[in-house]
Design a binder for these strands. Structure first.
Length: 542
RNA sequence: GCCCCCGUAGCUCAGUCGGAUAGAGCGGCGGCCUUCUAAGCCGCGGGUCGCAGGUUCGAAUCCUGCCGGGGGCACCA
């Protein structure tokens, strides 16, 4: 139990007490929030307004009764309460409560905010999964930043998480890459849908005897080189995958994984033959139309491979599959859900958060990136320009369903203004302060019992620290890592206000210095943790 | 035509499973370095939360319609 959980429990219990007095029914859970305005208390609840219709009484009168009950329940923690506005109950807490709260944060140590998942799940997050037909673009960087941060958050929240990259090393686009390389090697005209990028020319030069080799052969050689580059770019970005899954593998063997999956679906009666092709009846499970899995030419479609791939994921025992997808793939979701249902699983175990596009802005014009046109900014270029931390922050701090405009010139010129540095600076500042106090003094401060009066900015900072576990839980549950970026910035701002108003090292009396050192340590750890969950470094000095 | 996402300050965006007087960063203007890091701090200015209805004690948030932007509707991947 924490101070905050106690407080919430007390509000709910008091609410139940008041309701029981009048034998009321069941209501929505009362809120417990930090009001925006200072005069509205440290925490505020709408419990009375929720009870009003049930009890058929004035909200303000109910709030008054709730306040009385809470005063008894909370004892010395509640300084006083006020009934305000339409029936809010505003709670003002004592410094005792705040000091106990800081002690709890410190006692939790590195684990502060961790765990809390009501039901830990075995999760597979498949992300990026960009075809190895070119270098990784900045748009893929967004997927990498999002997927990796999400994995960090889910794992910290208590889930068992694996990261996987599924790569397409078979099929028409790959053959297309091979043909493009050969065209460059021979100085011939590019195929109509060929890859126009400069990197194809480089591949043609790197691969020995490229002009004489078959497109299939060149494709394999190209894929191998491009995959190595992709992995290197991701590692540089701080994103490491637990596994790399080859599509080609699904086609190999007899029967192949694809054939096995399709025969399973056939036995379940979900496939049929029409117009010379084999179809999956996805409409049974809510898709707009049925989908071809084996073309009349005898080749399997991409969907067929994906069926086998997802059957494989499930066979590996994952209880939750998370596939962040680009917004251009959202039409694919109904199909994928239908596949899971046809395989006999609950389609809801598959989640597909959508990431909107990253647009390139040049001279005021925006375009979306196209690998085929060779019109893109690579992740490496972005990292060269603004560095890993600024890039990760830039790509993760916005909601996944907002498009991002990337103007490389602007990004470079503004990188010094990136809020990530503000957060890192707060962390470094604390490190410097604590270094000045010395390890021994810090250890002493953490062990000290203190009973000092608090400054308002200290209370604000403590409330922010207490919000961290809920922020993590929210980011995990809603698959929204960007919330933690917003939180980290707010935490840094609250710390900076505290730093401005409250002398730490050298504060008198010693008890006061002890308390402030302890509060600084709690803040430093929490900033470091929030940054870590976003994949951003927390430097000791800047 | 059908489906998904977005529309909030000059710009980039938080806030969106209902709460009180809507926030931040950047940019603009004006101040602050003998005192724990000025990558900082303080002040000023800046808003029909796309539009119109509806539900509610209460709507940026929920519902409906419309307008604008992006994306998707393959025997491509």
């Amino acid at each position: 139990m924490s101070s905050l959980a106690d407080l919430r429990a007390a509000v709910e219990a008091a609410s139940a007490d008041v309701r029981a007095d009048n034998e009321g029914g069941h209501g929505a859970a009362p809120s417990l929030e930090r009001p925006k305005k200072e005069g509205f208390g440290d925490y505020s609840t709408n419990a009375a307004m929720l009870l009003a219709p049930v009890l058929r009484d004035q909200p303000r009168a109910i709030a008054e009764r709730l306040g009385g009950t809470l005063t008894e329940r909370l004892g010395g923690a509640l300084e006083h309460y006020e009934v305000a506005g339409p029936g809010f109950l505003n709670l003002f807490l004592t410094d005792d409560w705040y000091r106990a709260a800081v002690a709890e944060v410190l006692a939790a140590g590195e684990g502060y905010g961790a765990g809390g998942a009501s039901r830990p799940e075995r999760m597979l997050v498949e992300f990026v999964s960009a075809n190895p037909t070119g270098p990784l673009t900045a748009a893929s960087g967004r997927h990498a930043a999002y997927g990796d941060a999400l994995c960090r958050i889910l794992a910290f929240h208590g889930h068992e998480v694996k990261r996987e990259y599924y790569f397409n090393d078979a099929g028409t686009q790959i053959l297309n890459l091979g043909r493009s390389i050969r065209a460059r090697a021979r100085g011939e005209e590019m195929p109509p849908d060929g890859y126009q990028g400069e990197y194809v020319r480089d591949l043609a030069a790197e691969i020995p005897d490229a002009a004489e080799r078959s497109p299939e052969d060149l494709a394999a050689a190209g894929v191998e080189r491009l995959l190595a580059r992709i992995e290197a770019a991701l590692e540089r970005f701080g994103v490491h995958f637990d596994s790399w899954f080859s599509e080609r593998r699904l086609h190999e063997g007899s029967p192949s994984a694809i054939e096995r999956a399709l025969s399973q679906l056939e036995q379940a009666g979900h496939v049929y033959r029409s117009d010379g092709a084999l179809w999956l009846r996805t409409t049974t499970f809510g898709d707009d139309k049925d989908r071809v899995v084996e073309r009349s030419t005898g080749n399997f479609t991409y969907l067929a491979a994906d069926i086998a791939y997802h059957a494989d994921k499930l066979a590996r025992g994952f209880e939750r599959l998370i596939n962040p997808l680009g917004s251009d793939h959202h039409g694919y979701i109904a199909r994928l859900r239908a596949v899971l249902a046809a395989l006999g699983h609950d389609p809801d175990l598959l989640e597909t958060p959508i990431l909107q596009f990253v647009h390139i802005v040049e001279a005021g014009e925006t375009t979306s990136m196209s690998k085929r046109r060779g019109d893109f900014v690579t992740l490496d270029e972005l990292l060269d320009q603004i560095g890993v931390d600024a890039a990760r922050w830039f790509l993760i701090s916005r909601s996944n369903d907002t498009t991002i405009d990337l103007d490389l010139d602007l990004a470079r010129s503004e990188s010094n203004e990136n809020p990530v540095y503000y957060v890192q600076y707060a962390h470094a500042r604390i490190a410097s302060m604590l270094a000045k106090a010395g390890d021994e003094r810090v250890a002493g401060a953490l062990a000290a019992e203190t009973c000092v009066e608090l400054h308002p900015t200290e209370r604000t900072l403590i409330k922010r620290l207490l919000a961290f576990p809920d922020e993590v839980a929210e980011a995990a549950a809603r698959r929204t890592p960007h919330r933690l970026a917003a939180y980290a910035l707010e935490l840094a701002q609250d710390f900076t206000a505290f730093y401005r108003d409250c002398r730490v090292v050298g504060a008198e009396p010693e008890e006061l210095e002890s308390f402030r050192i302890a509060l600084s340590v709690a803040t430093q750890r929490t900033i470091a943790r929030a940054l870590d969950l976003l994949g951003v470094a927390a430097p000791e000095s800047m």
